[in-house]
Nucleic acid binder design. Structure first.
Length: 939
RNA sequence: GGUCGCUUAGCUCAGUUGGUUAGAGCACUGCAUUCACAUUGCAGGGGUCGGUGGUUCGAGUCCACCAGCGACCACCA
């Protein structure tokens, strides 16, 4: 990095610092205090986390037992979205943990009964596909075949356990104050019980059914996947228009000619004059399939007559929409020509059977071209669904699978699952506003509702092995006589049983399939709290969950399923507030991904800059719903800030004395800083209560750096009011603690305070009197000092040279004049003024005539004369004042115009009008004074 | 194609319900620095808030249209 500032440092270091600096300092030998000059997170973090964990305060029960939280305190619960046990956590997780932990620590400090519950997700298909990939990479060609179900599961379990360990270590390293004693895993016994209970309940209610329908099939993964697990990608394709035979009346178009071997109908719009008369006719065509196709012409409203040929070749077996058409027209048949192995079936005919779909396509096109049936070929771009886990293009095939019926009426409720899902975010369940989830930001409510509209029955069975086994058993009826069971019904030849455990008796075999991982995730908000025992303490106390956060990409997968499951089984909402954030990108706006190689390990970056810096960098950027970017520059800024806080504490430790006395404000500065503190407590509390993390951190940051470090600490060097200094800093530490748990706790320890900040009381907003009056008066001093410094910079006055000022109105006589009351601030704060503006002498005058050789500096109605005789070029100053005057005049004019507008006075609120009028008065006076001064300025 | 967003300083972004002359961090310029802090301090330059129109006493903020960008949804066969 090469900057002007950096060059300055280098020059300074070699030309002056080395000469002046005693050997010891340069080598970093200890200061008079034993507190290190720089905060070193590595020295603290592990130990502090251990201390917190051992204290037991992560556990809300312990907090009550030890009297930190009142037994009847308001409960506050946060559930960690369980990270997948597929490896290690990434920066996005770090961001989520930061969000949750800020919320948890804030509410805990406010005295609420706070539970932050951690967990991990077995992530069915994600984990299995990861382990299979690893096995293939290490030389196995087909892990499922070579190992078999049990041995492969062993491997996956081992991988998952190791990954779970890594993940919990990482969550700890982030400083997350979660209650490890309640750690939940989506695949442990308690959760298995919950899953089976829920499955059976839905099965009994007829909401889970087994049906023969087309599903998304991953040939590579040899499993189904739900609509939401598809990732649509664009790719070039060819759109072929052809006729089934020479005498077939309608040409049809397709991008997948090979599936046409399974066509059983052509759909046209029922009113289409071109084809109306053909509806109902059946054509026998011979295109190479095992049997000649009988194509029935049907009329369907969904067909758009203006698109293409206005006719759709219907392939019910290999298209979701075509399957839906068949639901409306049961008279047409279904022929499956592609199998689960991705190859053409026997029904596709001897020419094609056994070929891959792609091979069959080429062959089919060649055949119809030869016969002169191909009418048109166009290049188009097409969207195809791919499996988000296995990566291959999804085949749509008809199969018997398990589904959750979302459009079916729930017995006894008169509503469907979809209805409940809508109510939960709109009117509240059953119209009860208490049972309404607040979605932040609101726009996701719309997105979610829109998604529900197009939601189809959810396919929940998977053919992978890693996951909750479907709690259903079958046996051939002929083998054993029907036995007593909770649910059992004859279905043709086989008996079927759904229950918590295998049924008694011989010959039962469990369904080999497992459940979609989101089935168990959907139960997370209550399966972690003791359900199905609805009398469990945690369930009664912490459900519905108070705060939930998640990434926008997971809203449909997860939020929707949690709402579905909870509204259905508990007749309430899963959580009161859900905070949805965007994804974290790298500094160039790209997603973090393995293939780009731009991944950053949160633990590494946390070690380098400190976990607090990482948390601050991540949180100060988070606004609801928006993506944010991560960069090392932001890390540096945050680390520097953390170090600043540390050094403020060093100053306080060495330059002030602790005492039990209440803060005793003595000066304007004291009242100012206490007033400001009050204000920012109020603001920060409001921001955190409403989950405005970036605003909260910004409020604290500007107070800490600007008001406190740059002004009050400097003033303390003069006024030395230790009680106020320490009081403000103490409150500041507590305010920062949720964001920066480690450094604040470390500082707290160096102060010799044994009580953890984690359970310290959140500062209360105290309404102090005259905040604004003190603030305004202090601002006069501040602005005046800044202006004097500015003049010093502009005229390159040696910083060591002290100046003399004459304060107008500082005389006894002037002080009696109420209009000039403000000038009293200089008299009252002379020492501060001398120190911060490097003034050697303050003279007072009640004459408006500038003393010889001075320039005048004005803030509001207060002005002083700065003695610069022989120091600067007075003519240059005249020019500077001229510009200031011009600015003031422009501003005064704009204010006048505003006030001159009759409707402004009429319609604007009183306060705004008064405010504007005062501003104009002030500005006019300033203009007057300045122009007078321009004429009288003299060298 | 549908839906939902985004566009504010060179860069990354704040700006809660419309109200003083629009903010921060980084970057940039100048100065200083044996000072709690070189992971530092002080001062400064830089924006007609994407465009056009509207509502309003008043618009970065509300509305409409336009342009550019993005995300999600969708098998126009």
């Amino acid at each position: 990095m090469k900057t002007a500032r950096y060059d300055n440092h280098v020059r300074y270091f070699f030309t002056r610092y080395l000469k002046k600096c005693p050997e010891g300092r340069r080598l970093g030998i200890m200061e008079p205090t034993d507190i290190p000059k720089a905060y070193d997170p590595k020295e603290w973090e592990d130990r502090l986390y251990r201390k917190w964990e051992e204290s037991g305060f992560f556990n809300p029960d312990t907090c009550i037992k030890k009297g930190v939280t009142k037994a009847d305190a308001e409960p506050f619960s946060i559930l960690m979205p369980p990270p997948n046990v597929t490896g290690v956590l990434h920066l996005g997780h770090a961001m989520e943990n930061s969000i949750m932990d800020v919320v948890a620590r804030y509410h805990r400090m406010r005295g609420e009964r706070t539970l932050f519950l951690p967990g991990a997700d077995h992530a069915a298909v994600a984990t299995q596909s990861r382990v299979e990939k690893n096995l293939v990479a290490s030389g196995m060609s087909n892990p499922r075949q070579e190992l078999g179900r049990e041995r492969l599961l062993e491997k996956i379990r081992a991988f998952a356990d190791e990954s779970k360990d890594t993940i919990t270590k990482q969550v700890r390293a982030m400083g997350s104050s979660c209650d490890w004693s309640r750690f939940a895993y989506t695949f442990d016994d308690a959760r298995v019980l919950a899953v089976n209970t829920m499955f059976k309940k839905m099965y009994d209610d007829g909401l889970i059914y087994k049906g023969y329908r087309v599903v998304n099939w991953s040939v590579k993964g040899q499993s189904t996947c739900s609509d939401d697990e598809l990732e649509h990608i664009e790719r070039p394709a060819t759109l072929y228009t052809f006729r089934y035979s020479k005498d077939f009346p309608i040409p049809v178009a397709t991008t997948r000619p090979e599936t046409k071997l399974g066509d059983t109908a052509v759909a046209v719009h029922p009113e289409d004059p071109r084809y109306r008369d053909l509806i109902g006719q059946i054509f026998e065509v011979e295109i190479g399939a095992a049997k000649p196709l009988s194509i029935r012409i049907i009329g369907d409203e969904e067909v758009d007559p203006s698109f293409g040929t206005g006719a759709v070749g219907v392939t019910p077996a290999h298209s979701q929409t075509d399957f839906d058409i068949r639901q409306r027209h049961p008279e047409i048949s279904l022929v499956q020509v592609i199998g689960t192995d991705g190859k053409m079936t026997a029904d596709a005919g001897p020419t094609y059977a056994g070929l891959t779909a792609l091979e069959a396509r080429e062959k089919f096109i060649a055949a119809i071209r030869e016969k002169g049936l191909l009418e048109k070929e166009e290049d188009i771009t097409q969207n195809v669904g791919t499996s988000d886990r296995f990566g291959d293009v999804i085949e749509v095939v008809p199969m018997e699978q398990w589904f959750v019926a979302v459009n079916k009426e729930i017995p006894g409720r008169g509503k469907t699952l979809k209805d409940l899902m809508r109510e939960a975010v709109t009117t509240g369940l059953g119209g009860d506003p208490e049972k309404r989830t607040s979605v932040q930001p609101e726009q996701f409510e719309k997105i979610y509702l829109h998604w529900i509209d197009s939601l189809r029955d959810w396919c929940i069975s998977r053919q992978i092995w890693w996951g909750h086994r479907i709690p259903v058993w079958y046996r051939e009826k002929s083998k054993v006589e029907s036995e007593k069971s909770e649910v059992s019904e004859g279905e043709g030849e086989a008996e079927i049983y759904c229950g918590m455990e295998a049924p008694e008796g011989e010959g039962w075999e469990q369904d080999p399939d497992t459940l979609d991982t989101w089935f168990s995730s959907g139960l997370w908000t209550f399966s972690t709290l003791g359900w199905p025992d609805t009398e469990a303490d945690d369930f009664k106390t912490f459900h519905p969950v108070t705060f939930m956060q998640m990434g926008s990409e997971i809203v449909f997968f997860w939020m929707a399923r949690m709402i579905l499951m909870t509204t259905y089984t508990l007749d309430t909402i899963p959580f009161k507030t859900v905070y949805i954030h965007g994804i974290l990108r790298d500094k160039d706006g790209r997603k973090f991904s393995k293939s780009l190689g731009n991944g950053i390990d949160p633990i590494d970056i946390g070690k380098e800059y400190g976990t607090d810096a990482l948390r601050l960098a991540l949180l100060s950027d988070v606004t609801p719903g928006n993506d944010s970017r991560f960069s090392t520059e932001k890390m540096e800024t945050s680390r520097n800030f953390v170090n600043k806080l540390w050094n403020i504490s060093r100053y306080i430790a060495t330059m002030s004395v602790a005492s039990d006395e209440a803060p005793a404000p003595k000066s304007l500065s004291d009242r100012f800083i206490l007033g400001r503190l009050s204000q920012i407590i109020h603001e920060t509390t409001g921001h955190l209560s409403e989950n405005r993390f970036s605003l909260a951190s910004e409020t604290l940051r500007s107070f800490t750096l600007d008001d406190f470090a740059d002004w009050y600490v400097e003033i303390h060097k003069v006024e030395k009011n230790d009680t106020v200094l320490r009081h403000v800093f103490d409150a500041l530490l507590r305010l920062w603690h949720p964001f920066l748990p480690f450094v604040t706790e470390a500082i707290n320890e160096t102060r010799g305070d044994d009580t953890s900040l984690m359970i310290a009381k959140w500062p209360e907003f105290e309404k102090t009197q005259n905040i604004s009056s003190d603030e305004n008066r202090f601002k006069l001093i501040k602005d005046l000092i800044v202006k004097i410094r500015n003049i010093r910079t502009v005229y390159k006055i040696d910083p060591k040279q002290k100046l003399v000022i004459t304060a107008y109105g500082g005389s006894e006589k002037a002080l009696q004049d109420k209009a000039l009351d403000e000038s009293g601030v200089i008299r009252d704060n002379e020492e501060v003024f001398k120190k911060l503006a490097r003034i050697s002498e303050v003279r007072h005058t009640d004459s408006r005539i500038p003393p010889k050789g001075t320039v005048r500096i004005q803030v509001g109605l207060l002005y002083i004369f700065l003695h610069l005789d022989g120091i600067i070029d007075i003519d240059a100053e005249r020019a500077r004042l001229g510009k200031e005057l011009a600015d003031a005049e422009t501003y005064a004019k704009s204010l006048e115009a505003k006030l001159g507008n009759p409707s402004f006075a009429e319609r604007a609120p009183e306060a705004i009008v008064t405010q504007t009028r005062n501003l104009l008065d002030e500005t006019n006076t300033k203009v007057e004074e300045l122009s007078g001064h321009l004429f009288s300025i003299s060298s």
